[in-house]
């Protein structure tokens, strides 16, 4: 039996805990150079959208687990020839791939893929919807330093509306007992955030006040031409996390960023490279939580089987 990792929203706190513990164990084993039982399966890496870090991270994770990766990207694939996503997925299924890691520009696309693929599908980022393994990497990074997520105040700062990282992190942190805050300008905030697990702040100072964790989001430059923000400078002056603004947060606050960083826009160098920054740790932990995710997806606990029928019945009189 296989299971998917499509979103954090659908995971229970126990499942998140399981994944984070697995991630911690894999990290220990890799660092200690321990032998890890090889999974001996083939995983397709389907990237319908550019990605360097997530892709490298998943490939590294697969490598440590002894999984073979098959790469599939939009350039050179049949998608350019007009094939539907469903047909692509069916083709890969009958190419006997055992699992899929999938990134897609359209929200919900991995859920669709999971319907037609017989094996685990892992969401490596879908549209603005979710990026579950990024949230797991962030949670592991925070837990290594804070022990637990329970009771922490986590401020997610920037372009929340367009961010799958924001959504996955909000669900994960809230499910694990943290208080989530969304911080950003109105034009980059969902118009109706009532079902998202967090409070909305439109100014940075109050949004990060006494926060234990700040997750800064990347600002896409297109937002300016889209009419959603004035100038980059205007945005940076109001929402950049820098050495001055960090003082509003708790003294031991952690600073995270999913990368790639626009230095000078959402972070200044002092913040990005400062003592509170755990950005490089996030990248490294990304590998271990992705190992955990792959392993977890391939090892769903068997559902309890019905007790075997008593032998006496089968024996003919």
């Amino acid at each position: 039996m296989a299971r998917n990792l499509l979103s954090i929203r659908h995971l229970s706190p126990d499942q998140i805990e399981e994944l984070l513990v697995l991630g911690r164990e894999f990290k220990q084993w890799v660092i200690e150079g321990k032998e890890i039982a090889r999974l001996n399966r083939v995983v397709g890496q389907l990237f319908f959208e550019n990605s360097t870090r997530t892709r490298v991270s998943f490939e590294q994770a697969a490598h440590y687990l002894g999984l073979k990766s098959v790469n599939f990207s939009t350039t050179g694939s049949s998608l350019k020839k007009g094939e539907t996503l469903k047909d692509t997925i069916l083709t890969l299924r009958y190419e006997r791939l055992n699992g899929l890691v999938m990134r897609h520009p359209s929200s919900g696309a991995p859920a669709l893929a999971a319907r037609y693929f017989a094996g685990p599908v892992l969401n490596a980022g879908d549209g603005r919807h979710e990026h579950p393994t990024q949230a797991l990497a962030d949670a592991l990074t925070i837990r290594e330093r804070k022990g637990s997520l329970e009771g922490l105040t986590v401020a997610i700062v920037g372009d929340v509306e367009h961010s799958r990282v924001a959504r996955s992190n909000a669900w994960l942190m809230a499910k694990m007992g943290a208080n989530v805050r969304f911080v950003g300008p109105r034009t980059l905030m969902p118009a109706h955030s009532g079902l998202l697990p967090g409070d909305v702040f439109y100014d940075l100072e109050s949004g990060i006040k006494d926060a234990d964790v700040i997750i800064a989001l990347r600002l896409q430059r297109e937002r300016m031409t889209d009419g959603l923000i004035g100038s980059i400078g205007e945005y940076a002056r109001q929402y950049q996390i820098n050495r001055d603004k960090l003082r509003y947060a708790a003294p031991d606050a952690l600073l995270l960023h999913p990368g790639p960083i626009n230095r000078g826009i959402e972070l200044d160098d002092a913040a990005a490279d400062g003592e509170q920054s755990v950005i490089t740790a996030q990248v490294e932990n990304g590998i271990f939580v992705r190992m955990a995710a792959l392993y977890w997806c391939f090892h769903e606990p068997e559902p309890p089987k019905p007790a075997p029928k008593s032998r006496a019945k089968k024996v003919k009189a």
Binding site: R128, E130, R167, L196
Partner: peptide, 15 residues
């Protein structure tokens, strides 16, 4: 619809 559901699903909304 641009609303609470579109915010959760990360689907671009129509106001």
């Amino acid at each position: 619809n641009e609303g609470a559901m579109s915010a959760v699903l990360g689907v671009k909304g129509i106001p």
